[in-house]
Write a protein that binds this DNA or RNA. Sequence first.
DNA 1: GCGCGATTGGGCCACTAGACCCATCTCAAA
DNA 2: TTTGAGATGGGTCTAGTGGCCCAATCGCGC
Lengths: 212, 212
Amino acid sequence: MIRVMIADDHQLFAEGLSRALNGIPDTRVVGVVDSGDALAEALENQPAEVCIVDIEMPDGDGIEAISGLDSRFRSIVVSMHASDEQKARAKDAGAMGFFSKGVPLATLAAAIRAVAGGEMLIDYDDSARDEVLGRFMSAKLDPGAEALTPREVELLQLLASGVSATDELAERLYISQKTVKNHLASIFQKLAVADRTQAAIEAIRLGFANPQ
Amino acid sequence: MIRVMIADDHQLFAEGLSRALNGIPDTRVVGVVDSGDALAEALENQPAEVCIVDIEMPDGDGIEAISGLDSRFRSIVVSMHASDEQKARAKDAGAMGFFSKGVPLATLAAAIRAVAGGEMLIDYDDSARDEVLGRFMSAKLDPGAEALTPREVELLQLLASGVSATDELAERLYISQKTVKNHLASIFQKLAVADRTQAAIEAIRLGFANPQ
DNA sequence: GCGCGATTGGGCCACTAGACCCATCTCAAA
DNA sequence: TTTGAGATGGGTCTAGTGGCCCAATCGCGC
């Protein structure tokens, strides 16, 4: 679990990103602040491995804020209007990553994992960076969750979306009720849960629930 | 349930906002597009009551996009750098709401409810608008969910946190297993679900799960 | 006081879920 | 080619679930 602190004065963005990252199994947002000055203060009370810092903020520019941070706090700078000189400033200030707000969530999540693992993403050029990020794309799931087979994942998604009855699961997957129960038994063991209710909850927590 | 379509080219923002709104019981994001041109197209296949539209977008400015929309699709314009001139343009184009991206999520959620209910938020001045929004601040739960008794909510929270076995629920609540089953039966009816798995999923969706 | 809903229980019963065995088939990797 | 994992099934059994009755107690408001 990587603890993340967000510094951004646009609340819609910060709250949305916070919820999005909390929906990813291995990242957890432990705090949101709306100015550069508040960042260092928040980190004293609530340590975090990675900070997501916006450049454009009142009361303490984001880049100034991270230049004053303890080096054990790693930072990723995000900007609405990303430019090369902003990137250079971010690098000088000690940021380990630099992204436009136009990147997909999955990319930022990968960057968080990479930075938490010590990668200086900001040193790479674009293609090299993407190669590195590719290695961090998949969320490190619980040991049990990654052992799930494709078919088990399929069943789990259905379960997490509210299809709980054996006969309905069987219909949806074009298999017999018996096979549904066999898959479920295997899922229970891998997720270390006792019944389909706990499996569904765990599936939602792990992000297996497909939205809509 | 208010269906929401998001048009924003900043994926981090759009994905974050999408997840945030889906976490609110009475709003559901049914689509995300990254340009003004794609908005009208998406609405044909997937109708929505309210559109959240960013101004700054490539391939079709957000304001141009909503001016061409059918009037049954109501729009709220959000902007990174909100100005009076932008607000006037949004109003002329038929937007029913106008907000900076700096507003809290709860405000936008209230605005979505207000606009879905036909309020022309954009016509009010700031103080009058906040007064109107205040009336829409609380999420309207599903009719069934608000009929839940305190004890039923307590049980549902436990269930949503993974306590699925009858005997454990009984222990935690200091009541007999029989009473647990009675409460569950009542919950099933009120939430219109069939079993505890669906009840747990619905409880999580409704925000009854207490995190951590 | 009187009703009403919430909370707490009981009994009964059909059905289901989950645990434990097992077999077959396919496909890809070694 | 053989081995192993995955997917598909079967049978059986016990404990548990959920549906449907019912009743006593306790507050709270009318």
